[in-house]
Amino acid sequence: MTKLFTPITFRGLTLKNRVIVAPMCQYSARHGFANDWHLVHLGRFALGGFSLVIAEATGVSPEGRISYGCLGLWEDAQIPPLKRITEFLHKNGAAAGIQLAHAGRKASSPLPWRGSFNETDAEKAEFGFESWTPVAPSAERQTPSSPMPAMLDLAGMALVREQWVAATKRAEAAGFDMIELHAAHGYLLNQFLSPIANMREDAYGGCLENRMRFPLEVARAVRAAWPVEKPAFVRISVTDWIEGGVTVAESVTYARELKEIGYDVVHCTSSGFAGAQIPVGPLYQVPLSEAVRNGAGVPTAAVGLITKPTDAEQILQRGQADLIALARQALDDPNWPLHAMRELVQGDSYGNWPPQAGYAVRNKDRALGIFQP
């Protein structure tokens, strides 16, 4: 029996299969508000058969956004457009998740498809252009051309923690089934954890115990604010891929602490800092998921250039992960689970398509001579 299409339960949430959509920034919001782009972008994955769709990194504060085009959840007015999305996902068979984030020193960045702040005055007005001074564990730039961040003092850290709590409560009001704490990719919590970005000399810098302190404080506060019956995931960069950065062994220790707090799944990715030497290739992050799953005894999601259904199935069968997370592959093929089911599962899979489409796809395949009842 294929494992990819068997249900799995975390707390009170049962996912219909093991294929989920990883958060993908769209840089298409205006002042943090979701719009029709986000509805269609996320909604198509529910139609395509994914069991869980996780909305992009959503700023817990205006200055916590990666760019001025990122989603936010720092005010109640941002709840209704997100609730519209969760309702659509639910009606079409998918659970709804959201990744709550603070970009730290990587905030106030240009939109990736522009590459620089080259907006005209008219475009600035149209897109809701904003810029600000980022905050970080230390006054250290991400790159020589990045803005110099302001170092967070204890009061500032307490404020950020409370902003995360407030955003968590708004996520519940918006109808999300799970949240994911973003502690990866060189953003704020990852900055505290990594010696690459954390140069502090107080109780929040230096040894691993100190560097974990603030991320774990945030993790505890968020888990306490989120309903006990709903699962919480956390995304971590298992390695920085930089000498002197976070190691796999440190991440295993970190994951154990997160499990103890009550996080149900560790979403295993990597990197986030300038200068990383990343061995990019098919399935390149799967061993990181396996190391955390085995070392910390916690369920994991594997992500990163997983494109073939047979590979996804083998990852689960080998015990390297509990969930398969797709991002760019999902963009390329929003119907990936439906196509994978037809490849891996014997029998008629057309009934898994939305009724508006399944009969038409069946007839197309029959006409091409590839239909199998």
Rank of each mutant, 00 (worst) to 15 (best):
Leu71Trp: 11
Asp177Leu: 05
Val286Gln: 10
Ser349Leu: 00
Gln163Lys: 15
Val361Cys: 00
Val238Leu: 11
Leu344Tyr: 14
Phe117Val: 02
Val40Ala: 14
Asn17Asp: 13
Ile66Gln: 11
Val265Phe: 01
Gln26Val: 07
Gly358Phe: 02
Glu63Leu: 10
Ala232Thr: 07
Tyr187Ser: 07
Trp336Ile: 10
Ser67Asp: 04
Ala95Glu: 03
Gly69Leu: 04
Gln346Val: 12
Pro112Asp: 08
Pro147Met: 12
Asn352Tyr: 15
Gly319Thr: 11
Arg213Lys: 15
Ile370Leu: 14
Arg293Met: 14
Val60Pro: 02
Ile20Thr: 13
Glu56Thr: 02
Trp353Thr: 09
Ser251Trp: 02
Met178Lys: 00
Phe5Val: 12
Ala125Ser: 08
Ala184Met: 04
Pro215Gln: 13
Leu82Thr: 09
Ala296Thr: 05
Pro373Ser: 11
Glu123Met: 05
Arg105Ile: 03
Thr247Gly: 03
Asp36Ile: 07
Asp121Thr: 08
Leu47Lys: 08
Lys16Arg: 15
Leu4Asn: 06
Asn118Ser: 15
Asp322Leu: 01
Leu152Lys: 01
Leu154Ser: 12
Val21Cys: 10
Ile79Trp: 09
Glu250Cys: 00
Leu15His: 09
Ala107Ser: 15
Phe129Met: 05
Lys16Trp: 01
Ala232Tyr: 01
Asn352Cys: 13
Ala166Gln: 15
Arg114Lys: 15
Ser251Tyr: 03
Pro23Trp: 02
Glu243Val: 05
Asp153Gln: 06
Leu193Arg: 11
Cys207Trp: 11
Ser138Pro: 14
Glu172Gly: 04
Ile261His: 08
Ala150Met: 13
Arg114Tyr: 10
Trp241Lys: 00
Asn17Trp: 09
Pro227Cys: 04
Ala174Gln: 07
Ile196Thr: 13
Arg170Trp: 12
Arg235Ile: 03
Pro144Asp: 02
Gln372Ser: 13
Ser145Gly: 00
Gln99Ile: 09
Phe273Gly: 11
Val266Cys: 06
Lys259Thr: 01
Phe88Trp: 10
Asn198Met: 10
Arg30Met: 13
Trp226Gln: 11
Ala203Val: 07
Val40Phe: 14
Thr168Ser: 15
Leu338Cys: 07
Glu313Arg: 08
